[in-house]
Simulated scan of single mutants.
Amino acid sequence: MFVVNLRDQIKIDNQRTFLNTKEFADIFKIDGKEVKAVLNSATDSKHPLAYAEGVSLVTETLYVDELELGYIPEQGQRMNVNGKMRTLIRVASEKGMLALYLEANVT
């Protein structure tokens, strides 16, 4: 009988459920590479930029498999996500998954 430890089971669940395009994930183009990912986003329109009327701060968290992306991005780098430029403000790596915290100013 094959016994899976918890860490292995989390990796399996990430692939079968969380990054399953029939469940939660979508296909995203990140810096030209298509990967399965899950995106959470929010717009802070209550606190717009003081120097730019009508501009809101969009914050997004993009969850992607580290192996599928192929590298660990660095804080501060600019990333093209589905044709939109974002600034990476933080990276967290958890059990093979990357949480990419992105932001952009939009009108």
Rank of each mutant, 00 (worst) to 15 (best):
L49Y: 00
D65E: 08
S45L: 03
M79E: 07
Q75H: 08
Y71L: 05
Q75Y: 12
A52C: 01
K46N: 08
S45C: 01
I72D: 00
P48T: 04
P48M: 11
G70D: 02
P48K: 04
L57N: 10
P73T: 08
V58E: 07
E53D: 09
E60W: 15
L67K: 15
D65G: 02
A52E: 04
Y51L: 11
D65W: 11
K46M: 05
L69T: 03
A52P: 00
T61V: 03
Y63S: 07
L49F: 01
T59R: 15
A52G: 00
K46V: 03
V55Q: 02
S56C: 02
T61H: 00
T59I: 10
L49D: 14
T61G: 05
Q77G: 07
E60V: 10
T61Y: 02
S56H: 10
L69C: 07
L62I: 08
T61R: 13
D44C: 06
L67S: 13
V64L: 11
L49H: 08
D65Q: 14
E60N: 10
E60D: 11
A50L: 08
Q75M: 13
L57Y: 12
K46R: 06
E74N: 10
I72E: 03
I72Q: 02
Y63H: 08
E53F: 09
G54F: 01
D65V: 03
Q77M: 08
S45A: 14
V58K: 13
E74R: 15
Q77W: 04
E53Q: 10
Q75N: 05
E60P: 01
G54S: 01
P73Q: 15
Y51M: 06
Q77V: 04
V55R: 04
G54R: 05
P48G: 06
L57Q: 13
V64F: 14
E60F: 13
V58P: 01
P73Y: 13
Y71D: 09
R78G: 02
T61E: 04
E66N: 11
A42E: 15
T61I: 06
E53P: 03
L69A: 07
D65F: 08
D44G: 11
G54N: 09
A42N: 14
K46L: 15
V64D: 06
G76N: 07
P73A: 09
E74T: 13
V64R: 04
Y63A: 05
A50Q: 09
T59H: 11
K46H: 13
P48N: 09
E53A: 09
L57G: 12
G76Y: 13
H47W: 06
M79R: 14
L49T: 10
E66K: 15
E74S: 14
T61L: 01
S56W: 02
Y51V: 07
R78W: 02
E68P: 07
I72G: 03
V58S: 09
G76A: 03
G54L: 00
A42V: 09
V64Y: 10
I72Y: 05
G76T: 05
A50T: 09
E74K: 15
M79D: 03
L49G: 09
Q75K: 12
T61C: 06
H47M: 04
R78S: 00
L57V: 00
T61S: 06
Q75A: 04
A42K: 15
T59L: 08
E53V: 07
E60K: 11
Y51R: 03
L62S: 09
S56F: 02
L67W: 08
E60C: 12
S45N: 14
V55G: 03
L62Y: 04
T43F: 15
T43A: 14
T61F: 03
Q77D: 07
G70E: 01
L67M: 07
Q75E: 01
